[in-house]
Amino acid sequence: MSRLYNLTKGIIKENPIFVIVLGMCPTLATTSSAMNGLGMGLATTFVLFGSNTVISLIARFIPDKVRIPSYIVVIATFVTIVDLVMQAYTQSLYEKLGIFIPLIVVNCIVLGRAEAFASKNGVLDSVLDGIGMGLGFTFALTLLGGIREVLGNFSFFGLRVIPKDPWWSKAVFFHDPILVFILAPGAFIALAYLIAIFNRLKKN
């Protein structure tokens, strides 16, 4: 039961973006489309999974004073692995995400989970926690990316969802895509409303 909870809590209840509000930079920067959000989310999930596993194994042997630098080295190692693998196999996504792949290293979620969970719990729990948090992050990024892509480009995962010249095109404001949503301000505005909706739902 508690094992299952470790896996699922990150998705809604302790969602890193909507509830804990950590790791804002990649959330805002890489969600101009659902695909980019999904890619960034999965890359971070892998890093979380790897760093949580290794840190839960070695936490006992690390002196307390140097634990943060040690964790950062472990995290940076996994980020480098992701960086090199993505550069080799998913070139176009790698170019779109750009600088935000190496910047996973300073994503507060990863270090936060290492410090708050992996260093105090067993391997299995830490693995589940890492995957769960990663999936919650991926869910949030894909959702935000999807909303921005639909509003800003009328497409979802690159597929057009609203036809080019619909019959209502002259009548309603859904005439042209709202371009601002895939630009920088749209990221802030879309995330603001998503968190507000989440806050509201949580209260009920």
Binding site: G186, F188, I189, A192, I195, A196, I197, N199, R200
Partner: peptide, 15 residues
């Protein structure tokens, strides 16, 4: 109420 804290800050940043 729902916009207090982070959401309103993000909205301000968006503007």
């Amino acid at each position: 109420k729902g916009m207090k804290g982070v959401p309103i800050a993000l909205l301000t940043a968006g503007i």
